[in-house]
Design a binder for these strands. Structure first.
Lengths: 233, 233, 233, 233
DNA sequence: TATGAATGAGAATTCATTCAT
DNA sequence: GATGAATGAATTCTCATTCAT
């Protein structure tokens, strides 16, 4: 990442005695930076444009965030904090297993759909081999509750004979994310390749239906039962 | 203002009768550019470094490819040409439906695994909203044979009572790609988040197994049969 | 292709409340640019040399003026502002018609003689078909007072029977400028062609005398009177 | 001018055993170079574009003309050769003095009007302080016949009582050229400044009429006679 | 006579960052 | 806290020119 040591006395992500103005400026910078990096990626993002977008002096960005890399990291941390917070609100325990699984797929899809910045930032960060993320203890600590939620969910479903046995919750969680991520993050190239607008409303509905079918169909499929059926016939 | 006409004698992606040297230089540039853009993305890629990597004079890059954008587009076109060519070699018609479906998943996975440049270039291009791809008639014309292969495959399987009805081949194709793409393209952040190396050999094997299970399990699941089973019990 | 938005925070020809330093830097750049473009024309002028001449960082030129074209335009605008200002100081109304006409010729000559930058910039801009000037509302608004001064002057002279009738002030104004411009702007080639130094002091004096004679002689000539004389003899 | 010594064996403006092809190529290059330098000046002219315009390989330009500076000089020499040749065809001796003077003005005007390259090349060369022209013995030797023609003409006219005494033919010749040159060479900026198209047909006619009036009016004016008239009244 | 490939030096422009107040 | 001015180091791109055949 080649982050230069910050040798100025500036507070570098200062937090302590925060006035209203401080908060407002920092928030404006973060929002602007998030937009800029989402639209152009890290390397394509411009500090100048961030300052203009935030309506603050460029110098202030350095005062608050040290440098472009640290600013990007802050944006990333906020993006992760946001999704973790949304995930906390998911109450899958209350629902029937199948319904809960549907809900998980829907939630993930909707979050990605309404948070394009998360997809873009993730892509950008991965092109850079997670060089910023690796610096962040913070993000590592923000565990997603979804894996364990999914784990419990799968057990409940299996116990009720609704789900097949032996499903790895981590793999399934990644798959749920995959199905939405790929479609939405790469919708620009896919739309050109397939010659249609994958962002059209009905295309989006179709996609969610397919994804749900895929995940629920898989979880619900009973290899043994099917084998049995196959044998009978 | 002062007119800027690009009317240099340079060939800008020449095609006709090319000497061996021409081919070698162009190929070296393309390879170097592919590596550079894969590692750093479009905005982070440096023309200077590409010249060094290719062992050619920087000027030659402009001589052959016009500018950085056109060079990136060429790289992208070659990446698509490569995957299309690999896809052509897939003979799914020869195989049993279930086996063929497994093969499709495996092929896609292996291609992504051995062609990290494709994943990275795709991510980068999508951050830029496919701005280069949209310029390319070439890529639009390179239709993937996989969708129609998959279509025939699903019909065969359904006719044999092996696959469920009503599966959309485009959606399924996108899903197959999704499952591998997300895992591999974002493996850097995912590895940090999950605290384990997703690129380890057994992790890769596990992922392929899960993906295959997911896709085949979904295709093979018989909602009616399951309903029937559910009713009996 | 990759978007290029110029949204840097740079002021690009700032005008409002400027510190002394700002003024000094901008003035230094303008002066240096004027010299450079005068000596080498627009295409031959080098931004690097302008920075050195001005004693400022090259980046500052772009900070204040945007790019080479806009810098040239600024230089041009200042050159026009300068001549317009000098023209304002000409008080032809106070003088006798013939004397005033002499004064006009002398003023124009002296201005061109002491402002070689005006001649050179004009030549350069015309080679480019006024591409910069056409962008400038400013210059279009700087009307020269000379045409109307000359108009009134010619009327006065005609009323007093000193000048011939039917002289077009615009044409005469252009002619007055022509006689000095061609001689001074092209003095280098003319000196070679004629094999003598047209910039020598007495050559300059001679030229002014001839120009004055030519203009005053023309204005004072009475075609009718001459016809009459011709008939008598 | 910083002309590098030409150390190759190439003939540098070769002339000796000239095949049809040689002639054709050289002529094409000269024509293309003339156009290019006329449109963009010397510094703004591009060797690449000249090659394209001429439909020849860029290398050939260097083979025939050595380098850009020498090419420009050749263009300049041809431009002077052309005007000298046209001047030779002017038979002022045959005409009445006044008529001959009109003819001279008309000829000069028409030549400039139909040879914009001459004006532009002259402007460009003067911005460079005649650095190319100074190298050329050739051009120095091409004496214009107009000065001596004009000299004789003025004497004839004076002898016939038609022209005033004491007119310097060199100054008058320069003036005749000035009046057309300034108007035509700077017509782009002048058109913007005056807000009208100085290249319109009637504007051109008006200008020629004015120029003729100015020159003939001046030559024909009799300072003494006018003084006499002034005294009588 | 002709040409496609190649290049070094430079030219305009950009960018993250810092200075001084 | 905040900001306008300033900068060094790239970065993309250009240009006249030459090599090799």
């Amino acid at each position: 990442m080649a982050q230069k040591q910050n040798s100025s006395q500036a507070p570098v992500v200062r937090q302590a005695p925060a006035s209203r103005d401080t908060d407002r400026s920092q928030a404006a910078i973060l929002k602007a930076a998030c937009d800029e990096f989402t639209e152009h990626g890290f390397a394509g993002g411009r500090v100048d444009r961030i300052a203009v977008r935030a309506g603050v002096n460029k110098r202030l960005i350095y005062y608050y965030f040290g440098n472009k890399d640290e600013l990007f990291l802050s944006v990333l941390e906020h993006a992760y904090a946001d999704i973790r917070q949304a995930e906390q609100a998911l109450r899958l325990d209350m629902l029937e297993p199948v319904e809960a699984l549907r809900m998980l797929v829907t939630f993930t899809w909707r979050y990605f759909l309404t948070h394009p910045e998360f997809l873009s930032l993730l892509s950008s960060e991965n092109i850079m081999r997670a060089s910023h993320l690796k610096q962040s203890g913070k993000i590592r600590e923000m565990h997603s509750p979804l894996v364990s939620l999914l784990d419990r969910l799968l057990e409940r479903g299996q116990a009720q004979g609704l789900f097949r046995a032996g499903i790895d919750p981590v793999q399934l969680y990644i798959s749920v994310a995959s199905l939405g991520f790929f479609y939405l993050a790469n919708n620009h190239t896919l739309s050109v390749i397939f010659g249609r607008d994958l962002r059209a409303d009905d295309a989006l509905d179709e996609r969610l239906a397919h994804m749900t079918d895929l995940i629920v169909g898989y979880a619900s499929s009973q290899p043994q039962a099917l084998d049995a059926i196959a044998k009978q016939s």
